[in-house]
Nucleic acid binder design. Structure first.
Length: 103
DNA sequence: CCGTTGACCCTTC
DNA sequence: AGAAGGGCCAACG
């Protein structure tokens, strides 16, 4: 399913600024709710222009420190986009979890 | 072509 | 409630 990667690319690219999404949710929108791993792999191999820093864990925690270059940078980027961070170092999915319904 | 690995998530102990 | 293990799908070697 090469379309999966394409869909993931489209979905992530459609995430509005100030919002975040999870690997599982992206995989769900892509058509494979269990292929959350593939989403991450797709990000790793995805070309520039893909806001992978808006993609987080299901709990709101940032991906491993090896992701895209450093979770610290990701935190700064999300903060700069207007995303609220909890004292635990996780994103408030309650406020910024993007459901995938965007014009 | 087949085997292994991988930015994860969910169920069970 | 916390921790551990397994499973899914696709791409790379």
């Amino acid at each position: 399913m090469a379309d999966f990667n394409k869909k993931v690319y489209s979905i992530v690219s459609r995430i509005p600024r100030g919002w975040v999404c999870t690997y599982g949710h992206i995989a769900l929108l892509a058509g494979s709710p269990r292929a959350s791993r593939i989403v991450g792999a797709a990000m790793y191999r995805a070309p520039a222009g893909l806001p992978c820093h808006r993609v987080l864990y299901r709990d709101g925690g940032l991906c491993c420190d090896r992701a895209f270059g450093g979770k610290e940078a990701q935190r700064q980027l999300l903060e700069a986009e207007g995303v609220s961070f909890l004292p635990d170092g996780r994103v408030d999915l309650k406020k910024h979890l993007w459901l995938g319904e965007e014009p």
